[in-house]
């Protein structure tokens, strides 16, 4: 699930529930649709309400990094709960410099 909000040149996507391959596709198209319309300077992915995620969540982060690079903006990943730290660390997405 995802809810978006646009304010001060920043598009925030509040993700929630379980992120897996089943829902990643629709989350991706909702966020990309908004980003392509609004051309925000920053896309914030807020993970605070995510209860579970597998590597589909990592694909989602890497893909949005590319979306924002193409649109000339930047991506920030915020409020990653403790329970998701292991998969985030394992994935190496930290090297993209997006984790806040």
């Amino acid at each position: 699930m995802v809810k978006t909000e646009y304010k001060n040149n920043t598009l925030t996507a509040y993700l929630s529930g379980e992120i897996d391959h089943n829902c990643a596709g629709s989350i991706r198209s909702q966020i990309d649709g908004q980003a392509e319309n609004l051309h925000p300077g920053t896309l914030l992915l807020d993970f605070s309400k995510v209860s579970f995620m597998d590597s589909s969540g990592i694909g989602l982060i890497m893909g949005r990094y590319r979306t924002m690079a193409l649109l000339g903006g930047n991506l920030k990943v915020v409020n990653v709960p403790e329970r998701l730290q292991r998969i985030i660390n394992l994935s190496g997405v930290g090297a993209l410099g997006v984790l806040k």
């Binding site: 596709g25 590597s55 589909s56 990592i58 694909g59 890497m62 292991r86 998969i87 394992l90 994935s91």
Partner: peptide, 15 residues
């Protein structure tokens, strides 16, 4: 194109 990160087996092995 499915945005698979290529991490499936790495996650299984690590977890």
């Amino acid at each position: 194109e499915e945005e698979r990160a290529g991490l499936g087996f790495a996650v299984m092995q690590s977890f």
